[in-house]
Design a protein around this nucleic acid. Structure first.
Length: 439
RNA sequence: GGCCCUAUCGUCUAUCGGUUAGGACACAUCCUUCUCAAGGAUGGAAGCGGAGUUCGAUUCUCCGUAGGGUCACCA
């Protein structure tokens, strides 16, 4: 590799909210870029605002990243570096790059405070953004912006610049909402003699309403997706592909594949909508790939492990909490208890107006029972069950036999097919339920 | 409103001046065991508008329009 400088990226969330898909994607891109270039990935909690920062949000961010498998090489809390920020601030004042200004507090209390403003040279600043290209802005209309609430309370812009410098950050990958902050941060870099890192401002993630993702608009926290029974790899795959794609038809990417494929140059320039339906699709795809053991590790939170139900569940759930929904809605009632339904319901629609309908249906069921009784217990599976009665079913009429058979076994208008039901129920229960209807 | 950015199916996107504008999700229809699910097949669905440049524009330029971001003693 020609580049001698080691790549260092950072994800720098403020602990003022839970980790949602927008901030998660910023973390992913920073992480993938670092790993792709054998670099380091830093997690830095930006907690300089003591009022708004909350420990619970920091915990949420940490929990989420761990669950999602995004590991970091270094961890910092910005507040722990306050002495260094204060020192740089004092130097800036001493050098004449900043000055103390006595002003009335903005909180309306009327007290006069000493804040620190950066002396803005008013030059045009342009920087090369990896995604947006050259961005030029006039810093003149920024005025002398505030960099500290007091001589001892440095603010965001100062802290970010100093920390990125001290931590050797080479690539700043962050949300597009930071582009307009970049010129003033570059101004500070120049004043303290820090190099300007390479910037990559990624377009925002939008909700279905095409607005910036927000909690109010229903953006879920990563931990909420976890609790709903989504798989970490599904979230990783989904989120990394909003606003980025490798340019190939491949859709499924795990972390290793993502690291191999990720390329900042292929990041989209325009904002992208997060589509929950696509997430559901990814999740189903990954559920299919789960081993039986893995499957039950997730499913056990919602239903007692029963291997007979595995295939049925796998085919029907989008996320693991759907199991609870199925149980609560009675969709699986046939598994737990004898179905309870009116006899006339089991008659197929063709025979509804036939006065002999019930009698005929009972005869069909009786024939089914006869055919099933010869199927050996050891060979009781849906294929053998099907072949045992299929000739009769075809000769009589599929709906005429299958509908009552299925209704008898499940008690539900909508359920898995009768062969699968019979297999899961077992020979004894199946025949008992069928016989009960006959008598 | 100032400044910055953006603009291909409903959504995520491919296309590096010449394509029947491709794929995925979603949707519709059909098939596969009666219903549900899964699976398979098929189908509908897009270049914001207007000027240029060019033999030729989705692609390059400009102007509109629309969307997003940002204008704190938050980050």
């Amino acid at each position: 590799m020609e580049n001698t400088q080691k790549v260092v990226t950072r994800f720098a969330p403020s602990p003022t909210g839970n980790l949602h898909s927008g901030s998660y994607r910023t973390a992913i891109f920073s992480y993938l870029f670092a790993k792709k270039h054998n670099g380091e990935f830093i997690l830095r909690i930006e907690d300089t605002d003591k009022e708004r920062s909350k420990k619970e949000f920091e915990d949420n961010i940490l929990d989420s990243l761990q669950w999602l498998g995004i590991s970091y090489d270094s961890f910092y809390r910005q507040s722990e570096h306050i002495a260094r920020h204060q020192q740089v601030l004092a130097q800036l004042i001493a050098d004449g790059h900043a000055y103390i200004s006595k002003e009335e507090a903005k909180d309306g209390s009327g007290v006069i405070k000493e804040i620190v403003r950066f002396k803005n040279p008013g030059t045009d600043i342009s920087f090369q953004d990896e995604i947006k290209g050259t961005v030029t802005m006039h810093t003149g209309d920024l005025g002398d912006f505030v960099i500290a609430k007091s001589a001892t309370e440095p603010l965001f812009h100062l802290a970010v610049v100093v920390d990125d410098f001290d931590e050797g950050v080479t690539h700043v990958i962050r949300g597009e909402d930071h582009v307009s902050n970049t010129p003033r941060q570059i101004l500070i870099q120049r004043a303290i003699g820090a190099p300007t890192p390479i910037y990559a401002h990624i377009p925002l993630v939008l909700g279905l309403d095409k607005q910036k993702l927000s909690k109010r608009k229903g953006a879920l926290a990563m931990t909420e997706y976890r609790d709903l029974g989504y798989l970490p790899v599904a979230l990783l795959n989904m989120v990394s592909m909003v606003g980025w794609n490798p340019g190939t038809p491949q859709e499924l990417f795990d972390k290793v594949a993502l690291i191999a494929e990720f390329d900042l140059a292929k990041v989209q320039k325009s904002p992208a909508v997060f589509n929950p339906e696509k997430l559901d699709w990814f999740n189903r795809e990954y559920i299919k790939q789960l081993s039986s053991v893995e499957f039950w590790n997730y499913a056990e939170k919602y239903i007692a492990q029963d291997i007979k139900l595995e295939t049925l569940l796998r085919e029907r759930i989008t996320k693991f909490s759907d199991i609870k929904t199925m149980v609560d809605s009675g969709e699986l009632s046939w598994f737990f208890a004898e179905p309870d339904m009116k006899l006339e319901n089991i008659v197929w629609k063709n025979l509804k107006n036939d006065t002999e309908g019930i009698t005929k249906t009972k005869k069909y069921i009786a024939t089914v029972v006869e055919n099933l009784e010869v199927v050996p217990e050891a060979n009781w599976n849906k294929d053998s069950i099907k072949s045992a009665i299929w000739d009769f079913v075809e000769a009589t009429g599929k709906g005429d036999v299958l509908w009552p058979m299925r209704l008898t076994l499940s008690g539900l208008d909508r359920s898995p097919d009768p062969f699968e039901l019979a297999e899961i129920l077992g020979k004894e229960k199946t025949i008992a339920r069928l016989q009960k209807v006959i008598s």
